[in-house]
Each structure stands twice: as structure tokens, then as C-alpha cells.
């Protein structure tokens, strides 16, 4: 029951930026001059892959796996996405969500804190990460709580 509530709450937060194409939150803003912004500035001579398209594709797959209850597969795909985009708090959060569902509370909390740290503490992802930390705290009877 708690899991369902959790899932609902997080789902709502997560879908804030996304409706339509699965549930992909907006890509994080990166430094100027990096892959992301460069790609955007250049006039596309032919319809190029959008920057971050690789990560988006992986996240869509991970979300599908998660929806279908294949948490193991979802985690594998999310780790692959992290290798491509290690500073993206949304990916860390998703991985936290998967680990929480698997009952790995301590790991879920660490991942959520990593997400929170990268997000700078603001925005929808940070909000969702905080909620997840609270959920871990109550699920573990206060054993794993954020400082």
C-alpha cells in the first residue's frame, strides 16, 4: 500500500515536466560550450538527434521496464544512462526510486541524496528526492533518515 502511494506521489512529481513522451524530466542545464548547448546553437543541416536524445531514449526504456515491474532491468538501463550523463539528478533519482521499490532502503537513500546534491536542492527532482528520503525514513522506522 505504502509502495503504491509512494509510486503515485513520485509519479506525479516526475510527470511535471513531461507528459506525452513517457515520463522524461527536462534535461539538466549544463555549462556553455559543452555537448548540449553546442548542439542546440548549430543550425541543423539535417534533422539531427536532439542533444540528450540518447539519455532520453534510455530513460524511456527504463521507465517502461519500471512500469512493467522489471526493476532489475530498469536499474541496468539507468546505470547505463548514468555513464552517459553522470551529473543528471533525474537519473540518480530514478535509480533511487527503483532501489526503494526493491526494498534496498539504504542504497535508495544514498542515491536520492546524490540526486539532491546534484540538483542544488531546487526544482521538481529535488522535491521528489526529498519525498523519497522521507519515505525511506518512515519505511525503516526512522533507522535511515536524512540528517
Amino acid at each position: 500500500m505504502r509502495r503504491m502511494v509512494m509510486r503515485l506521489a513520485l509519479g506525479l512529481v516526475m510527470s511535471g515536466g513531461v507528459a506525452g513522451c513517457g515520463s522524461v524530466p527536462p534535461a539538466p542545464v549544463e555549462e556553455p560550450g559543452d555537448a548540449l548547448s553546442r548542439g542546440r546553437q548549430e543550425p541543423p543541416r539535417e534533422p539531427a538527434s536532439a542533444p540528450g536524445a540518447a539519455v532520453d531514449a534510455l530513460l524511456a526504456r527504463a521507465d517502461r521496464a519500471w512500469e512493467e515491474g522489471q526493476t532489475g532491468q530498469a536499474a541496468v538501463i539507468l546505470e547505463r544512462a548514468l555513464r552517459l550523463s553522470p551529473d543528471d539528478p533525474a537519473i540518480w533519482f530514478r535509480l533511487a526510486r527503483v532501489r526503494l521499490e526493491q526494498g534496498r532502503h539504504a542504497l535508495a537513500a544514498s542515491l536520492a541524496r546524490r540526486s539532491l546534491s546534484l540538483s542544488g536542492g531546487d526544482g521538481g527532482v529535488a522535491e521528489a528526492a526529498r519525498e523519497l528520503l522521507e519515505a525511506v525514513c518512515s519505511a525503516t522506522g526512522g533507522a535511515i533518515c536524512s540528517p
Binding site: G39, E42, A48, S49, A53, A54, D56, A57
Partner: peptide, 21 residues
């Protein structure tokens, strides 16, 4: 695979489909 100044600019199947990864 299209390459531009040391980066991958995009990937396309020979059939024309965009391949993100």
C-alpha cells in the same frame, strides 16, 4: 555516424532512421 570537430553530431541508419544510441 556524422562527426563534427571531435564530436558525434548524429547517427542515422542507412534506411534514414535516426538512432539515438
Amino acid at each position: 555516424v556524422r562527426l563534427e570537430s571531435g564530436r558525434v553530431a548524429g547517427i542515422r541508419g542507412v534506411g534514414g532512421d535516426e538512432i539515438p544510441l
